[in-house]
């Protein structure tokens, strides 16, 4: 069976599911951010695959580049927030940051 669009979509789906599991189960703030990166990468893979096999041209790749830029921005701000949480609560366990609840 020749590798085609469906193969790349399956890889993207598996990466997405692993990212989802990471985000849902990690207590470590940095681990949660890693899961978000995986999810964004899966979306990127799908964008580039659809661009290559269905649309043609480069607009899908341009969109993937914007996603990469926003993922880098999100990682910088997210890790800054994790550092601030660590300074405030002396822990990066995401369950420790519940001050707004009280």
């Amino acid at each position: 069976m020749h590798v085609s669009l469906a193969h790349f979509l399956v890889v993207g789906a598996l990466l997405f599911c692993f990212g989802l599991v990471t985000v849902a189960t990690r207590r470590n703030g940095v681990g949660v951010l890693m899961g978000v990166e995986l999810i964004l990468n899966a979306a990127n893979l799908n964008l580039v695959a659809f661009n290559h096999y269905v649309v043609g041209g480069v607009s899908g790749q341009v969109f993937a580049l914007f996603v990469i830029v926003l993922a880098a921005a999100e990682a910088a701000v997210g890790l800054a927030i994790v550092l601030a949480i660590f300074q405030t609560f002396k822990s990066i366990d995401v369950r420790a940051a519940d001050a707004l609840r009280e």
Partner: peptide, 27 residues
């Protein structure tokens, strides 16, 4: 998608991953 691949290498592997490792080491 050669350009996207190189951008992925530079931005993710070179930038984001180093940031993540920094955060791990600092926290």
């Amino acid at each position: 998608a050669d350009f996207v691949a190189v951008a992925q290498l530079l931005v993710y592997v070179g930038g984001v991953l180093v940031l993540v490792l920094f955060a791990v080491m600092l926290t």
